[in-house]
């Protein structure tokens, strides 16, 4: 108790709330415990500094928020058992964590696709390069198919040529080759039809004219004669006249080729 009394007296001493007699008595006691005068003065100064430090008072709004949060927590606690609440919280956390990971992956993939798709498209040089590669690929495929032993595949190839916007020299050459040498008349006929699209090309026109002598099928002879008349290709007349020397020629075909020669001369 005595100690406690002395502590309380010390606090009062530092605050200057002791009477002169009480102050004198306390200082003599402190000196008896080995405390020097300057130490007693220092303690007084520290006490004074602590008192000067300002402490923010909680505002009324802070109080209100605190009590609201407290009330919410109390409601949650009362609506679910402590164990259930915790496990739900754990499940919910793992679910949301998984969702976040999935969303992250999805966003990454979306970004990657957007970059690779729109990124390339946005560059006209890349687009042109891609388009050129696709065209090369299609043309290579057509050339390969034109070499297949199955006439069905060759017809597929010629059909693909018809769908090309423009055929390059290799394709034209292959079509002319098919017109002259393919062992199936239908492939020859279809090649002829496909070449008509390029009849403005002098190489194609010359190729068509020189192919007249290579045809034994009346149907192809007839079609070539029709084409030459439609193109008003006068250079074809001598070639058409040559095949008229074939005595075994179908009468109808002979008549029509004669008519074609008359028109072209």
């Amino acid at each position: 108790m005595k100690k406690k009394d002395r502590k309380e007296k010390l606090q009062y001493l530092f605050k200057g709330d002791l009477s002169p007699d009480e102050t004198e008595e306390l200082n003599s006691e402190l000196k008896k415990t080995g405390s020097a005068d300057d130490e007693i003065d220092s303690l007084g100064m520290v006490s004074e500094l602590i008192d000067r430090v300002s402490v923010d008072e909680p505002s009324s709004s802070m109080d209100q928020r605190f009590y609201e949060m407290l009330a919410d927590e109390a409601r949650e606690t009362s609506s679910a058992g402590i164990t259930g609440h915790r496990s739900g919280r754990v499940r919910s956390n793992s679910f949301y964590a998984g969702l976040r990971v999935a969303a992250g992956i999805a966003l990454f993939l979306l970004g990657w696709f957007m970059q690779s798709w729109f990124g390339q498209r946005s560059d006209p040089r890349d687009l042109a390069k891609l388009s050129g590669e696709m065209k090369d690929l299609r043309e290579t495929l057509v050339l390969t198919m034109l070499d297949q032993p199955s006439s069905l595949e060759r017809i597929r190839a010629v059909n693909m040529v018809s769908q090309l916007e423009k055929a390059d020299d290799r394709i034209i050459e292959s079509l002319l080759n098919a017109l002259n040498t393919d062992d199936n008349d239908n492939v020859r006929l279809l090649s002829l039809e496909a070449l008509l699209k390029y009849s403005g090309n002098p190489a194609v026109r010359d190729g068509l004219i020189s192919s007249i002598k290579n045809q034994s099928s009346p149907m192809i002879q007839l079609r070539l004669a029709e084409v030459m008349v439609a193109l008003k290709e006068r250079k074809a007349a001598p070639e058409l006249r040559k095949i008229l020397t074939n005595t075994g020629m179908n009468y109808t075909v002979r008549t029509r080729i004669n008519e074609a020669v008359t028109v072209l001369l």
Binding site: L152, I155, R156, N159, D185, L189, L222, N250, T252
Partner: peptide, 10 residues
């Protein structure tokens, strides 16, 4: 997906 072709003159 496979084309077909049928031709006859007469």
């Amino acid at each position: 997906d496979y084309p077909m072709m049928f031709t006859s003159l007469e």
